[in-house]
Design a binder for these strands. Structure first.
Lengths: 203, 203, 203, 203
DNA sequence: GATGAATGAGCCTTCATTCAT
DNA sequence: AATGAATGAAGGCTCATTCAT
């Protein structure tokens, strides 16, 4: 019943095909409206075979979230090697805003979160992902402040900054759905955002 | 097809029953998983009768969003009469955080947004709601700054502040789902949040 | 439970309103697609009240068929007083063709017949109507031939002619549905029809 | 959405199962009263699977009509090879009458026609079927008359004869519903019918 | 590994009919 | 006599999932 053997390389590649196809379908149609048949067709395989690679539909979206999480961690790692965090973010504020509020990606995020609030397995994945990201984010902030300065702050200060920074970016995603296509949005937000980033990242 | 006569008081009360029941079901199960039968049962009426009060299932969630919008506007109006905005928010930071990140309400919000990105009718309602709220929020910020100070700011400055403030609160909602039940969350965020609010609301 | 008192004049008029409205709705939408709500609205009364006047939806269509039958009998009676049958029909061949193949009426006829083949009550009405019409038609043919000539024919000859005449007109109705809007239809059929009528009605 | 690949032999056989089952159910209960569940059961498969073979319920009845049409065309082709048309018809008049007025088949015809007058897709199929049959019928009549004789007739004469012949047989079908089970019906009509056929098919 | 035919539970919606007023 | 709110059964259809091949 349960998969026992370790997945072969071939199986891994097939899994990735499904993940890519599913992400595309979910973005296009939403999690519920995308049918396994459609995903199978997009992935170039039969519906039945997907069940040799994934437990069920929920399992697919969980795997997508896990992969997204790794992307975010990789992103953070880049920052970590890029030197002064604050300067980097100030330099790419507009891009960051645009990227987070891109609507089709934002829609998928909402879908995932809605689903996570009542699907235990997905909730686990989402929360683990969140935990990992927060941990890294705190490390990044701490490093950016310098160890001395960081150690002089109140104990939860770094946590609070990381949480709020996360909230801010997630809020941009929500904005992407609630208010798509306002032309001056990015331009209006950027200067304000820069001041907020100062507050969150400066010593 | 649609009822043309203005709905009677009785019908209005019945509609409200359905809206309350539906909101509860959507929170509990999600929009797709909540069946009309379940909503009907919760509302204490037959499934068929719901269709005398609402066009269809989509119409129900649209009405819920409209009502939420009115609640938010009422909330903003209270602030408007409560005097200095910044002081009020600084005084209630913890409450605001807790309230926005309450998980069952947050789940419903995610559901609505996910649905809105693919359902034209709902999208219209969500976007109109967003527009109204933003308008009021800008008025509130302008009033809070004082007319002189406001007029001296760059043209999109107020817009940018309102957008970011909105994003921040929506981000708290997302946090409510991604990271439910971290005990020190509110305590850790509040001081940081207060500094951010200063940046967003001070002259 | 059962209606006991004889229907008042007012009730009779209300019944007629319903019959007219229902006939209109059935023609427009078909028997199944026309809802009692629509009929009620068209008749200018509430759905509930229709059930004070008719047993149920089937009862309405049965009453319509009965009324149609009376119309046909009246039509035959006119012919009976109009003198030579054959000459009358030859003079109005085109009209008769057009009238019988008019599509919206034809559609209703099909609906009724389809329904009659499995609704016992309606079947009774339809068959009684058919019997009455046939009887009158035979009388008409007999009268048209003259009693002497008629008496010299084989016993079932008149019956056969009446049946075939009926079939022919019903066939035009079917044609109205199977082949609506062929411009030259009437013109092409009329001369042939006249020759057939000669065969059916001449001594 | 729709299956693009050509249906396999297996699929074709399954389709036929459904068509046979549906025709039986429609005859027994009527188009509207026959449920997909009943059809599925009769066809020995699950309701869901029918939708792998047919677009929807309407599509099934359309396919039935198309098949009927082919049967009729095959019938006409037999006549075409059987030599003198008039003689053949005179020799089989009784059978033709009985066959056309067989009640359960007649009921299905009525149902189809009623439905066709309101369902665009079905209407197309019915009208195309009618057109094909008429074309063949005219060819048959023309051939039966001999080319010389046919060419000497007025231009719409053949069309008129074909239309009337069609009407006559369709009228028999209606008779099958309006007047089922009159014992002497066939015997009474046959001689009259033979004289009418002379008029329609003789030079 | 891979297919795709097949299942069947369950959903939204409609509508004839009833009944309290 | 008349209303129209309310019922609830039933229908067409979808789709995640299974399984014989």
């Amino acid at each position: 019943m349960t998969t026992s053997a370790p997945p072969s390389d071939r199986a891994l590649a097939r899994r990735q095909q499904v993940l890519d196809a599913a992400a595309e379908c979910f973005r296009r149609r939403g999690f519920h409206a995308a049918s396994m048949a459609e995903i199978a067709k997009t992935a170039g395989m039969s519906p039945g075979h997907i069940y040799n690679l994934f437990e069920n539909k929920d399992d697919i979206i969980a795997a997508i979230v896990e992969q997204d999480c790794e992307d975010v961690l990789a992103r953070i790692a880049e920052f970590q090697q890029g030197g002064a965090l604050l300067e980097q973010m100030l330099a790419h504020t507009e891009e960051a805003i645009d990227e987070h509020s891109e609507v089709s990606e934002a829609a998928l995020q909402m879908e995932v979160l809605a689903e996570a609030s009542r699907n235990a397995k997905l909730a686990t994945v989402v929360q683990r992902s969140e935990a990992l990201v927060h941990e890294k984010a705190q490390a990044l902030i701490r490093q950016s402040l310098g160890d001395e300065a960081a150690s002089r702050l109140p104990p939860d200060e770094i946590l609070g900054r990381a949480l709020l920074l996360g909230a801010l970016f997630n809020g941009l995603t929500v904005l992407g759905v609630r208010n798509p296509a306002m032309p001056q949005r990015t331009a209006a937000m950027a200067p304000v955002m820069r001041r907020v980033l100062q507050v969150l990242l400066a010593p």
